[in-house]
């Protein structure tokens, strides 16, 4: 009895397996079509979509449930996106995906992503290649990378960016961009803080986002202290902040102070102060010194 049934079971198994494969392919195609259509809609009606989230048109029965479910699903996804944005410190505004090549063992996609990290805007284009190897492992790699960064701080990372493009180190770029932006923001905040606190003494010749802050007491003309705060990125993405003190003294004062070797020892003493007190307290101390004079 068992022997009679086996062949029919086997044929059924084969028929079902074939149908499953066919259905899976068809579903993948339908999904792809639908999503491409939706991506087109977004790129044409960005603002309308926002309105659709808030407006409440009269739904017919049936569609109402679909819409409610969809809204709930969407809310959940929006929450995820907000959390991801917060965690990554990177805001993504737009992304575009195009499939360039697709076979059973290889997929090549072109991605274009734009957004900002604190106040640095970026646009990144990359090619993602996925190759299915034996033992069902997928090897993913970036095969082409182009990066555009906007902002006056870009000059300090341009060498790093071109190195990253050459080696296709997409993840390294974003790790370094985040760390670099945070450091720059810290510098801006510090400069802005002192400008606000001592408007008469502090000058920012390049603005808040520049790297120079000049301190000058109007009562002591010709005597200035300049903080030059450089932030650079090494080839492998290490952020190196460097603060130097440049002093300018009028001749008379220079002579008087020369006995104490102030002008010569200043920069060196400044570095040890920085190590001991940290940036803010060091600047504060120097401002206090200038005021007393």
């Amino acid at each position: 009895m068992a022997e009679n049934q086996t062949p029919t079971l086997q044929t059924m198994e084969r028929v079902y397996e074939a149908e499953i494969k066919l259905l899976q392919e068809e579903i993948a195609m339908l999904q792809n079509q639908q999503e491409n259509n939706e991506r087109e809609v977004i790129s044409h009606f960005g603002e309308h979509t926002q309105r659709a989230l808030t407006s409440q048109p009269d739904f017919q029965r049936g569609t109402k449930d679909t819409a409610m479910n969809l809204k709930m699903e969407l809310e959940k996804l929006e929450e995820d996106l907000a959390r991801q944005t917060k965690m990554n410190g990177i805001v993504l505004n737009e992304c575009e995906v195009n499939t360039l090549e697709k076979s059973k063992t290889k997929i090549v996609q072109q991605h274009r992503v734009s957004g900002n990290c604190i106040f640095l805007d970026f646009q990144v284009e990359f090619q993602l290649t996925e190759i299915l190897e034996e033992e069902a492992t997928i090897v993913r790699s970036i095969t082409d990378l182009n990066i555009v960064v906007d902002g006056c701080e870009f000059i300090d990372i341009s060498a790093f960016v071109s190195g990253v493009e050459e080696t296709k180190s997409l993840l390294l770029f974003f790790r370094a961009l985040r760390a670099f932006s945070e450091r720059c923001e810290h510098r801006n905040r510090t400069f802005a803080h002192f400008k606000e606190k001592y408007p008469e003494l502090v000058r920012l010749p390049e603005g808040c986002r520049g790297e120079v802050m000049v301190i000058q007491n109007p009562k002591i003309p010709g005597c200035t202290l300049s903080f030059v705060w450089n932030i650079t990125v090494t080839k492998d993405g290490v952020i190196i902040p460097k603060i130097d003190l440049l002093t300018k003294l009028p001749e008379q004062a220079a002579l008087a102070l020369d006995q104490r070797m102030v002008a010569e020892n200043g920069p060196q003493s400044f570095q040890s102060l920085l190590r001991i007190l940290g940036v803010e307290a060091t600047i504060e101390a120097l401002i206090a010194a200038v005021c007393v004079e």
């Binding site: 809609v41 989230l53 969407l74 790790r175």
Partner: peptide
Amino acid sequence: QLSFLMARKTQVKDLLQAHHLIGGY
């Protein structure tokens, strides 16, 4: 409206995927 909701859903999904690809946590 349904079309727009679905379109936004796809967009958010794409953005989440992009976060993943650029090495976000």
